[in-house]
Design a protein around this nucleic acid. Structure first.
Ligand SMILES: [Zn+2]
Ligand SMILES: [Zn+2]
Ligand SMILES: [Zn+2]
Ligand SMILES: [Zn+2]
Lengths: 165, 165
DNA sequence: GTTGACTTGTTATGCTGTAACACACAGAAC
DNA sequence: GTTCTGTGTGTTACAGCATAACAAGTCAAC
């Protein structure tokens, strides 16, 4: 589960090199434990997503892969992305038709997303309290929630401090 | 705001004829008050959405409109749908790339959606408690939520009673 | 070394959404 | 009543997102 300040850490300036390589290590370890293979395309795709905290469209990822000698047809990117999502290493953002690397693989695989409309960065927030509220409201109507999509658009602390309205 | 049992009412069998015409009346009244025009295409589009409690894709709506003598090109449907969404008479569902009529126009324009995976119907739930939880979690990270997308996939009471797993 | 599961690449196509332009029509200005 | 202006409706053409179906390479297991 993300710490209370995992959100702020995402948006604030930080040693992103270390941030990315930590996630990559965790990902490799995690996959090894599942017997899944982090092949070159898949690894490179994850690295590309990890270059920033933004979400990227599949075709944006594809352009990068193609430029580096991988296939240049859509399924190449979509398959790698689907693999990452399936194994909890990336998330899909419905609002953006885009993908973002998961920053704490192995924890909460259906987090709430906070998308800054100014810097475009995406943070993952603990979904449990939100899911609880949703489940409660739904239960009053006899509805059983199985999966929830929670994506918030707004302004991050860093952008707010810089005076973005 | 939806009543506690507005959710159940959506999924359970009911006098949908009356359900639809009530919404249509409210919509007309509401638009008149805003000086907006419920033209034939727009009205028909809303009626089509109101035929069921399901969400429809823009092209599905377009086919219907075209069959009834309206234009057969995508912008015809997208424009009518955009108008309805802008005026709070319909909602867009991100997960489904689809649109559904708003069942209580004028109340909570950013509800949480409950989508039944069995009967495909969509209900609107009170978003306030969920938004509060989300806002609180985000605030801990310094993030200010402006708009939130909350869409739950699950099973409605009616389908559950019918033994759908 | 052959089998079979998996991965990666391709071509082709389908679904979703928008930009730009032409015309019709209503109400205001004259 | 004519002209102007804004809004609405229709078109063509295109952009962006996603998948189906097939071919060929890899690699461990047998
Ligand atoms: Zn980082
Ligand atoms: Zn920001
Ligand atoms: Zn109804
Ligand atoms: Zn149902």
């Amino acid at each position: 589960m993300p710490h209370d300040d995992a959100i702020a850490a995402t948006f604030a300036p930080h040693d992103h090199q270390q941030c990315a390589s930590r996630v990559l290590d965790e990902a490799a370890t995690r996959l090894a434990g599942q017997g899944a293979r982090l092949t070159p395309v898949r690894r490179r795709t994850l690295e590309i997503l990890l270059e920033s905290h933004r979400a990227m469209g599949a075709y944006e990822v594809l352009d990068r892969l193609a430029a580096e000698g991988f296939g240049r047809q859509p399924p190449v990117a979509y398959r790698a992305l689907e693999f990452l999502v399936t194994h909890g290493l990336a998330h899909r953002l419905q609002r953006l038709n885009a993908f973002a690397a998961c920053l704490h693989p192995g924890h909460d695989h259906h987090p709430a997303f906070l998308i800054c409309r100014s810097c475009d960065k995406v943070a993952e927030a603990a979904a449990a309290p939100i899911r609880d509220a949703l489940t409660a409201v739904a239960a009053q109507g006899g509805f059983r929630v199985e999966r929830a999509t929670v994506e918030a658009l707004g302004l991050c602390a860093t952008c707010a401090e810089e005076g973005v309205a």
